[in-house]
C-alpha cells in the first residue's frame, strides 16, 4: 500500500469522515520562553473530530509545548488557539510522560481527582471511576497505592484518570516513552481499541516513527529551532491494526516514508 496524500475514501477509516468539523484550531501560534528560546514559530494546525494525530519530531521541536498550549497550560506569545468548549470542566484529558500519580492516594482516589475538583463526591463518582478502571483493566486495583503497581499499570491509571471526565479530546505527551517494549506495544493496542470504540480525538506526542505510524490517522512532522511543522501526512493504513500490520510491507513502507520526512526535517 502506498501513502496517499490526497483524502482517502475507505469507509471504516475513522479519521476522515468528520475531519471537516475541526475540534482544535491553532492559528499562527508562536511561543517564546522568558530565556529567549523560540519553542514554536507560527504554527498552523487544524485537528478534526475523531482524528488520531501524532506530533512527531526530535526533542526541542516544540511538540510538547504545542500540546500544553492546546490544553490551556500557558498562553501563546502570538497567535490564537481555539480549543474544545469547557476545557477546565474536563473536556480535555491529559496524559503526561510520567504517570504523575499522587503517591499518597489510592488508585481510586487518583482517578477520582478530576471529578473531585469539579465538586463531585466519592459516592457519586464511584460508577464513573469503576467504569474507567474496568476499561483499562484495573478494576481489582482500586484500593492499591501507586507504589504497589508496575510502570505499565501506573500508566493505565493515568489514562483512566484522563478518561474519567469523558473528554472529547485526549492529549498524550509521550505517554509510553518510559515503558519497556512489550508493555508499550500492548498499551498501544489497548489505546487503539479504546479510541476506535469511543468518540474522542487524540493528539499524541512521540519521537517514535514506528509508534506514530501504528497508531495514527495522521502524522504531523515537526522540526526544531524554531519549532515548526514541516510535513502533514495522512496515514491511510487499514483497520483494525494488529500484529500482522506491524510486520506488513505496507507498515514498513509508511515507516520509511515518515522517517525520510523526519530526516529532512532535521537537516533543515
Amino acid at each position: 500500500m502506498s501513502l496517499a496524500l490526497a483524502p482517502q475514501t475507505e469507509a471504516d477509516e475513522p479519521g476522515r469522515e468528520t475531519a471537516a468539523t475541526p475540534l482544535v484550531r491553532l492559528e499562527g501560534v508562536s511561543k517564546v520562553f522568558a530565556n529567549g528560546t523560540v519553542a514554536l514559530a507560527g504554527l498552523d494546525l487544524v485537528i478534526g473530530r475523531h482524528e488520531f494525530v501524532s506530533l512527531l519530531g526530535p526533542s526541542g521541536c516544540g511538540k510538547s509545548t504545542a500540546l500544553r498550549l492546546i490544553a490551556g497550560l500557558g498562553r501563546p506569545t502570538r497567535g490564537r488557539i481555539v480549543g474544545p468548549e469547557g476545557a477546565a470542566r474536563g473536556a480535555v484529558g491529559f496524559v503526561f510522560q510520567e504517570p504523575t500519580l499522587m503517591p499518597w492516594a489510592t488508585v481510586f482516589d487518583n482517578v477520582w481527582l478530576p471529578l473531585r475538583l469539579q465538586g463531585i463526591g466519592r459516592r457519586e463518582a464511584e460508577p464513573r471511576v469503576g467504569e474507567v478502571l474496568a476499561m483499562v483493566g484495573l478494576a481489582d486495583f482500586a484500593h492499591a497505592y501507586p507504589r504497589e503497581l508496575s510502570g505499565g499499570m501506573k500508566m493505565r491509571v493515568s489514562i483512566a484518570r484522563a478518561l474519567v471526565t469523558r473528554p472529547s479530546l485526549l492529549l498524550m505527551d509521550e505517554p509510553f516513552a518510559a515503558l519497556d517494549e512489550i508493555t508499550r506495544l500492548k498499551l498501544n493496542d489497548e489505546l487503539l481499541a479504546l479510541w476506535r470504540a469511543q468518540s474522542w480525538t487524540v493528539v499524541f506526542v512521540t519521537h517514535s516513527v514506528y509508534e506514530s505510524v501504528y497508531l495514527s490517522t495522521r502524522i504531523v512532522v515537526m522540526a526544531p529551532r524554531p519549532g515548526r511543522v514541516v510535513a502533514d501526512l495522512p496515514i491511510d493504513a487499514p483497520w483494525p491494526r494488529d500484529e500482522a500490520f506491524r510486520t506488513s510491507t505496507a507498515y514498513n513502507a509508511l515507516c520509511r516514508r515518515v522517517s525520510a520526512e523526519l530526516h529532512r526535517a532535521m537537516e533543515g
Partner: peptide, 12 residues
C-alpha cells in the same frame, strides 16, 4: 483494555 499483562502488585 485487556487484563494487565504485568504481574499483580506484591501484596504486603
Amino acid at each position: 483494555m485487556a487484563r494487565a499483562l504485568e504481574s499483580p502488585p506484591a501484596s504486603l
